[in-house]
Amino acid sequence: MEIFILAFFALGYLVLAGADIGVGMTLPYLGRSAAERREVIAAIAPFFLGNEVWLVATGGVLVGLFPELEGELLSGNYTLVVTLLLAWVVRDMGLWLRGRLPGSGWQTFWDGAVVAGSWGLALSWGLLLSHVLLGMEGPVAVLPALVLAALFATHGLTFAALRLRGVLRERAAVLSGGAGHGSSVGPGVDVRTYALTSAALLTVGTLAGLQLPLHPGPAGSFLVPVILVLIPPLVAAQGWVWWTFRHRVTGPSYL
């Protein structure tokens, strides 16, 4: 049961936050002008806070249920985890700060931070997963890391195709054959391609998880029931967000 809980939050993070990371990576492609970029960011704005907490929860589950693994995993990949955290901080601050001042220089700068942070996150995850999954380290790991980063970017595009309209949606749908067809392609296609990239991320995450020494600590006997009771309200809270923002983006958001 401990392993199920860890997998639930870790895989939830990969699929959900994978989408906002991917949108950040493809921001220069999706949004060609400042106004377009702002609308692209509106696609992920209501979600990124609720998405990244899945990793916070994963960290909490690790320290509570797998304290030994937590120490090994984090301190054993010290430089990589530090890079990942820095990229995360830069990406988030880019999102938070870009809309707070009107100047175009300011906004372009923080858009750059969003793009750089998103790439940093995707590549750090790529390197980390390559290390856990394939045992690869150093320059040789760059190849699978790039493949995984490409998967994040594709996943971001499929999410953007679900959320955006018009020309922005067409750009996002370029890989799923949506370009050129415009609105004649129904949302069904967008949902299916999103499901496909989600499944790919889930597979990578599951395979990497199977390589880890998952020996739960003794706190589970008490902590597991508590967490199992908490999961339904947590999912319901997230469901409320998804329901509120189920429509396609019609304009810029607060960010």
Binding site: P46, F47, F48, L49, G50, E52, V53, W54, V56, A57, G59, G60, V61, V63, G64, L65, P67, G217, A219, F222, L223, V226, I227, L230, P233, L234, A237, Q238, W240, V241, T244
Partner: peptide
């Protein structure tokens, strides 16, 4: 003390961020 941290991330951080976004 990991139990307290785990509960903190789930009961507090998770809900706080999700609802703040909302």
């Amino acid at each position: 003390f990991g139990s307290a941290l785990a509960i903190e991330t789930l009961v507090a951080f998770f809900i706080e961020s999700t609802f703040l976004g909302l």
